[in-house]
């Protein structure tokens, strides 16, 4: 997802996420964006990393993955390539649409707004880590059963948000709680009513 509106200097219409992170030094930028990493940022102190690639060990879907990353690279970029987990999707590039939603230490986060170096030492879960076509997570199963998807590009993000809501509220999950959980996810095909149905059905099943 790269192109520039050029005049010389940064693109108008706001910084891209990568431009924002670039050169900022890993620790500085992420703490504000990413609450659950505050502890890690403190330990690391103000030292800067890069600009070249640095080795990072990421714990993704239960497996340790050692990858060299540029400090400016987002977790989303590193998950998709080189880790080849293309479930999380790049869409808005600025923490608005939720198509890249993953869990970090069990909490939902936008992978496009987290630096890969910051995610080291944390448990990362992507949609692929919830289940696969032969062994669906209860929320994924409900998404299929209630047709909570159309083109499917936003679906991994919605699945992660709903699965978190189901995990948090259990059988008592309400319509309003599903809407809250998915308030940071956008769908252009207009699948929201079925998403709500699916999440509530999954909760009832005891997700």
């Amino acid at each position: 997802m790269a192109d520039k509106q050029s005049e010389g200097g940064p693109p108008r219409g706001g910084l891209t996420r990568r431009a924002l992170f670039k050169g900022a030094g890993a620790a500085a930028a992420a703490g504000a964006v990413f609450r659950s990493l505050e502890g890690a940022a403190e330990e690391a102190g103000p030292r800067s990393q890069g600009p070249g690639k640095v080795p990072v060990t990421l714990k993704v879907n239960g497996a340790e993955r050692k990858v060299p990353v540029e400090p400016r690279e987002t977790l989303l970029e590193v998950l998709r390539l080189p880790l080849e987990l293309t479930g999380p999707k790049p869409v808005c590039d600025r923490g608005t649409c939720g198509a890249c939603t993953i869990w970090v230490d069990g909490e939902p986060a936008y992978a496009c707004s987290v630096l890969a170096v910051e995610a080291a030492g944390h448990e990362i879960t992507t949609v692929e880590g919830l289940g696969n076509p032969d062994a669906l997570h209860v929320v994924q199963e409900a998404f299929v059963a209630h047709d909570a998807l159309q083109c499917g590009f936003c679906t991994p993000g919605f699945v992660m948000s709903c699965a978190h809501a189901v995990k948090t509220h259990g059988k008592d999950l309400t319509d309003a709680q599903v809407r809250d959980a998915c308030a940071g996810n956008l769908c252009r095909c207009g699948t929201y009513p079925h998403v709500i149905k699916a999440a509530l059905a999954a909760a009832k099943k005891g997700g």
Binding site: R80, L85, T86, G87, P88, K89, P90, T126, V127, E128, L130, G131, N132, P133, L136, Q140, E141, F143, V144, D147, A148, L149, G152, F153, T155, P156, V159
Partner: peptide, 14 residues
């Protein structure tokens, strides 16, 4: 549906 709900569906971007 199962491919899309698990992230296994591959789009051009993937």
């Amino acid at each position: 549906g199962a491919l899309k709900a698990t992230g296994a569906a591959k789009y051009s971007y993937d």
